[in-house]
Design a protein around this nucleic acid. Structure first.
Length: 406
DNA sequence: GATGACTGCCC
DNA sequence: ATTCTGC
DNA sequence: GCAGAATGGGCAGTCATC
């Protein structure tokens, strides 16, 4: 009996995507207003407890109650996040910076109390059983009760160098045959922060202080770090990170508190500029939401020795609304075939596409796929005869492997 | 029991 | 993850 | 500057179906 607009929200309610503009931020502000306490106090209590319901109850008793909230073991807090940025801009903000490797693995939060421990993923799911080897390594790394923050990577047994991210994925959330994969893929934790030690909450300590506590209380797997006020030194550190097969570096404010769930300017990631290649647009999928009535993503192909077009990746991000419109008008008339969600085009269009890395792909015919593909621009000046070839992609992959594997 | 579509989560 | 957009 | 909304590859897990 529901009217269309009602049906819409009933459906969203069931799907868990209400999208009515009331997210955590608004609830937090509402709690602050309802009980006449500062929003910052509510925010801080929420960051430490990760429980808005509990925060609301405490807020009712006033600011004093909110200030009693502590980070607790086995109640994970959200991870502090980083933004993209530059070393130069960061150095204008702060004279001395901390720099660490940026590991291409999976973030974790380790909680330990005595001989009991748990490991949580970025979404705060417990993954202890999937990576018991890592749990043991971390247990042995400190005698303290603590909450540690870090990144697990897979490493090559022989060379000790990092393996591609895909290897970590094969282990991180595994439930079956954990033992078997433990032998095949060696994981190593890298710890770069400490959130709690022996009952003491550290989120309001400056990073320099947390780092000091970390190095004093954890004996193994602590991520290397340098402090520097010199751009040349930090750039050299960045080059050494890449030379060692890492993704780049993180640069961090030494005075910053640990702010759970916040993607602030205190942590900045530095990665290589994107590479680019020209590929043919051979198909698309219909979009959803604000991309309804448009193509939402585009299937891309390279050429093989015979000139055949071989699917390699899709691309969807990096396209402005205007360009999305232009592309629709351009491509809608050269649709060759159409099935449920997809269309194929006469291959006549070339995109320049940016990417972070070439990956081995089990899904694409090319045997490779692009990691983090993004639309750069339409190459109306190029024909499909001039696009990237499978051979040149293999060459790029070999070059990349040489760089990563030394 | 094998295969494939789909989901959720890692980046 | 990246990117764009409206506020 | 921020939050929200589009979307990428790829992995394990789940469930329906052959």
């Amino acid at each position: 009996n529901a009217k269309p607009i009602e049906a819409r929200y009933i459906t969203r309610l069931i799907l868990g995507e209400l999208r009515i503009g009331i997210g955590e931020g608004n609830i937090r502000d509402a709690v602050a207003k309802a009980f006449d306490v500062p929003a910052a106090a509510v925010e801080h209590a929420f960051q430490a407890s990760n429980d808005l319901g509990e925060v609301a109850v405490l807020a009712k008793s006033g600011v004093g109650a909110l200030e009693t909230v502590r980070v607790e073991l086995f109640r994970p807090v959200k991870m502090m996040l980083a933004r993209q940025g530059t070393i130069a801009a960061m150095l204008e903000e702060e004279r001395v910076l901390a720099a660490e490797y940026k590991y291409d693995g999976t973030r974790f939060q380790f909680h330990k109390k005595g001989s009991e421990c748990r490991i949580y993923s970025r979404k705060l799911e417990e993954v202890t059983k999937a990576i018991p080897d890592v749990a043991n390594m971390l247990l042995e790394a400190t005698t303290h009760d603590a909450i540690l923050d870090g990144e697990v990577i897979a490493i090559d047994e022989d060379t000790g160098r990092p393996l591609p991210f895909q290897y970590v994925l094969r282990r991180f959330r595994r439930k079956h045959d954990v033992e078997g994969h433990m032998q095949k893929i060696r994981l190593v934790p890298n710890i770069f922060d400490i959130i709690c030690i022996d009952g003491r909450t550290l989120i309001d300590e400056p990073f320099s202080e947390r780092r000091k506590i970390l190095t004093e209380s954890v004996s193994r797997y602590v991520a290397p770090q340098i402090d520097s006020d010199d751009i040349g030194t930090i750039e050299a550190f960045y080059r050494s990170a890449l030379a060692d097969g890492h993704e780049g570096i993180m640069i961090k404010s030494r005075s910053a508190h640990y702010t759970p769930g916040v993607r602030g300017k205190e942590w900045v990631k530095i990665k290589p500029a994107v590479d680019t290649m020209d590929l043919a647009v051979i198909g698309a999928e219909w979009g959803e939401g604000k991309r309804a009535k448009h193509f939402g993503s585009f299937l891309l192909a390279c050429r093989d020795e015979l000139g055949e077009l071989i699917p390699l990746s899709k691309v969807a991000t990096g396209i402005s609304d205007d360009m999305l419109d232009i592309l629709y008008e351009m491509l809608k008339d050269i649709v060759i075939s159409e099935s449920k969600n997809t269309v194929t085009f006469e291959p006549d269009t070339v995109f320049e596409v940016g990417y972070a890395e070439i990956q081995k792909s089990p899904t694409y015919e090319a045997g490779y796929a692009l990691r983090f593909p993004r639309f750069i621009r339409l190459r109306d000046d190029k024909s499909v005869e001039e696009i990237e070839t499978l051979q040149s992609i293999e060459a790029r992959f070999a070059e990349q492997t040489k760089r990563l594997q030394g």
